[in-house]
């Protein structure tokens, strides 16, 4: 099933929200961005500070698997 979905994506068929997820992962290393407000609030709730996110590492992986090029193709066809 994933193989078919992957082919569909390569052909440029992708729901907009999935494309947004992909961009968020490339930009922030996370599918959902954590706001500065939320980070500042953590200690007041008794939560430890968040560890840094491996954004550089994830970009290297997305480049190695050519995911970044797939994403670019989607933008060209939209």
């Amino acid at each position: 099933m994933f193989a078919l979905r992957n082919i569909a994506f390569k052909e440029g068929y992708i729901p907009d929200i999935y494309s947004e997820f992909a961009s968020a992962i490339y930009d922030n290393g996370r599918i959902v961005t954590i706001s500065k407000f939320v980070e500042k609030k953590r200690p007041t709730l008794g939560l430890p500070p968040l560890q840094p996110t491996g954004v550089d590492a994830i970009r290297k992986i997305l480049s190695a698997t050519e995911f970044d090029k797939l994403q670019l193709k989607k933008e060209e066809t939209s």
Partner: peptide, 28 residues
Amino acid sequence: VDLANMTCCAPPPVQSIDLETSFAVAAY
């Protein structure tokens, strides 16, 4: 234990886009 430099898990929507990328990010 909270480890540094973790990222998104590349969840099912990313698997739908490219399974290899999702597994590579998970493996990282």
